[in-house]
């Protein structure tokens, strides 16, 4: 029997953000990411999951263990059906927040991972895909 290579976690509350972080830490360890890279990935998870809860009204996190030749990595998709983001460029700017945050979550998460892709439009929710390789 092989272990599952993908799955989904519901991200509806602050508590789910904590559980999501713990789950991704395990996946990152399984993929052989070194401690600093685990920490970077888990920090990105914290930012994106919290955004999904606060701004997206809750969402889901899909995870997949990806392989490319000898490399292994964790790919995560954060998706919500919230209001979406009208101005993506603005939202991705360091220090820009529509609320009371530091405005670091999106731009910071992008720097912390190897691949980052965001899709969002008003009324169509938000979808962020990130990958971190070992």
């Amino acid at each position: 029997m092989s272990t599952p290579r993908s799955g989904t976690y519901a991200i509806r509350s602050e508590q789910d953000v904590v559980l999501g972080r713990q789950a991704v830490r395990k996946l990152a360890q399984e993929c052989g990411l070194r401690l600093v890279d685990q920490t970077k990935l888990v920090t990105a998870v914290s930012e994106l999951a919290r955004n999904a809860v606060i701004y997206g009204g809750g969402g889901d996190m899909d995870w997949t263990i990806v392989e490319e030749g000898a490399r292994k990595g964790v790919q995560l998709v954060f998706r919500d059906t919230g209001p979406g983001i009208a101005d993506l460029k603005q939202a991705m700017t360091d220090g820009w927040t529509s609320g009371t945050g530091l405005g670091l979550g999106l731009a910071g998460a992008k720097r912390l991972v190897d691949q980052f892709e965001i899709q969002s439009a008003p009324g169509q929710g938000t979808r962020v895909t990130i990958t971190k390789w070992n």
Partner: peptide, 14 residues
């Protein structure tokens, strides 16, 4: 502050 956290904070921009 754990070393891995310190390194991550710099990249996060905090």
């Amino acid at each position: 502050m754990q070393p891995a956290v310190a390194i991550t904070l710099v990249e996060l921009g905090l």
